[in-house]
Computed example of a mutant assay.
Amino acid sequence: MAATEATPTTAIPSRLITTAPKKSAAMEVIEDLTYGSTAGIVGKYIEYPFDTVKVRLQSQPDHLPPRYTGPLDCFRQSIKADGVLGLYRGISAPLFGAAAETSSLFLFERMGRAAVYSSGYCPRDRALPLSALWFTGAFAGAFTSVVLTPIELVKCKVQVPASVDGSVPKVPSVTSVIRDVYKHEGIRGFWHGQMGTFLRESGGCAAWFGSKETTTKMFRLLNDRSATSQFEKDALAKEALPLWQQAVSGASAGMSYNFLFFPADTIKSRMQTSPVGGTKRNRTFMQESRALWNQLGLRGFYRGCGITVLRSAPSSAFIFMVFDGLKRYLPL
């Protein structure tokens, strides 16, 4: 898509700034799926050990004293028990999930922009304002949550094995988890925790895309002010941001995504790590929320938040840098 000059009331999504000819809709979809999958896999390898620790902190039983005193203690106990590779246990499903999630996010975000243009909110010959880009992020997250919930359910059950009878649980495989969930709860069981995923993804992705584009616009305005001529301003509008600015924009997106809706993710993780096949019925989103509040109060909803926000900064930075770089330099 051809670049246009940004104004104080509009924002050009940074991944759309390119000098290449306009592609067909089909090619745009293929690029979103291909490059989004690649970026998601890169990001998942970076963040997965931290994600394992986060889930273990979030899913500690509410009827027992906490097993871990904090993220560092969880890292120490996990490595002592299973070694470093234990932090990557169950990564096969999340790698598939990361590819599906990231590609779906970019695809649905593009569909969201098309819907905004079709509504007449913004003329098609103008870039969408930042308010619309926050909306398209929420649009993308809402639809992606339906794809993501079954994948995350399997991931959580592999990361935190649960025992029905109180015995020491065996480490399950991805296939055994899928088999057990289907046997005891049917297809519907794979969407246990959907409300938590929906809230986290719709709100979090509004912040993910919105923060990234807001920070990108800020950098472009700062760079534009340093230009000495209109020719230099036009050239800057067509060029990619310096790598450090791209990294800061992507990092701000990841930190916003994870911090703002972390309580919903905590409740989802607790729901998805509950034992399968016992006599105890699965709790609803509200029931799990009340149980956690009664046990630990407000701080219980943010258990593991620090390490999650910390690992999201480099992961999200790499996701956007890989995706934007592939779109710019390796167009299909």
Results as ranks from 00 to 15, higher is better:
F106H: 15
Q159R: 09
A99G: 13
Y121I: 11
G166F: 02
S119I: 07
T136D: 07
Y117H: 14
R126S: 14
G97S: 13
P129L: 14
Q159M: 12
A114I: 07
T102C: 13
P172F: 09
A162N: 04
V171E: 10
F108H: 02
A138R: 11
L107K: 06
T102G: 07
A127V: 10
T144G: 01
E185K: 15
A114F: 05
C122G: 12
K155S: 03
G166C: 04
A138T: 15
A162E: 02
Y182D: 00
W134T: 05
V171L: 08
P123E: 12
E185H: 15
V158W: 02
K170I: 03
T144Y: 05
A99F: 07
F139V: 08
A140L: 06
L153Q: 03
M111I: 10
L107W: 11
V181E: 02
S176T: 15
T149Y: 04
S145A: 14
S145G: 07
V171W: 02
Y121C: 03
A100I: 15
H184A: 15
Y182L: 12
L130S: 08
S167I: 07
V116S: 15
S118C: 02
V168F: 01
S103I: 11
H184M: 10
T149C: 10
V171Q: 14
V160D: 05
W134R: 10
S173G: 14
P150R: 09
D125Q: 07
H184K: 10
P169N: 06
S118W: 08
V164K: 15
R124W: 11
R126G: 03
C156W: 00
A138L: 12
R113M: 15
R110F: 04
W134S: 10
V146H: 07
D165E: 09
K157D: 00
P129F: 12
L128M: 14
Y121N: 07
D165V: 13
F143T: 03
S176P: 04
R126N: 00
